[in-house]
Computed example of a mutant assay.
Amino acid sequence: MRQRHHFHTDHAGHSVSVTVETGHTVRVEVLVDGKETGYAATRGDRPVVVQVEIPTDPPEAATVRVRPGPGVPRCLFEAPDAESRPMSPRAY
């Protein structure tokens, strides 16, 4: 059965949101300021890494690491100028 899980964090004045859709195939979508900037898919509980760009001046590369399972998915946000941090779950 498919389930959607949502996560969020703010970085450098920008909103970063992740939707993880679990099931046989796991789909991960990353939005920065409401625009899709990254997407990945995998099977089962394999970890997923999605590279995104934060629209700062100059643009900044960042990484979202997703562990889809077992259990509830977890997301970690990593940027060069900030400490890695877990993304907060969000109910939609």
Rank of each mutant, 00 (worst) to 15 (best):
R2I: 02
R2L: 01
Q3T: 03
R4Y: 02
H5G: 06
F7E: 00
F7S: 01
F7Q: 01
H8L: 03
D10F: 07
D10H: 12
D10E: 13
H11N: 09
H11A: 15
G13R: 12
H14T: 14
H14C: 11
S15G: 08
V16I: 15
V16N: 11
V16M: 09
S17M: 06
V18K: 07
V18W: 07
T19P: 00
V20W: 00
V20I: 00
V20L: 00
E21F: 03
T22G: 06
G23M: 07
H24M: 07
T25R: 15
R27F: 06
R27P: 00
V28M: 07
E29L: 01
E29D: 10
V30Y: 02
L31G: 05
L31R: 15
V32G: 11
V32A: 13
T37W: 09
G38D: 14
Y39M: 13
T42P: 03
R43N: 14
G44T: 14
D45G: 03
R46T: 08
P47K: 09
V48N: 07
V49P: 03
V49S: 13
V50K: 05
V50L: 05
Q51N: 13
V52D: 12
V52K: 10
E53L: 08
E53D: 04
I54E: 05
P55Q: 11
T56Q: 05
P58K: 03
P58W: 08
A61M: 07
T63E: 15
V64N: 12
R65K: 00
R65D: 01
R65H: 02
V66L: 00
V66C: 02
V66K: 00
R67I: 09
P68I: 10
P68V: 04
G69M: 03
G69R: 02
G69P: 02
G69V: 00
P70C: 08
V72H: 05
L76V: 02
F77A: 02
F77Y: 15
A79S: 15
D81K: 08
D81T: 01
A82W: 07
R85V: 05
M87S: 13
M87L: 14
P89C: 10
A91P: 04
Y92N: 08
Y92I: 06
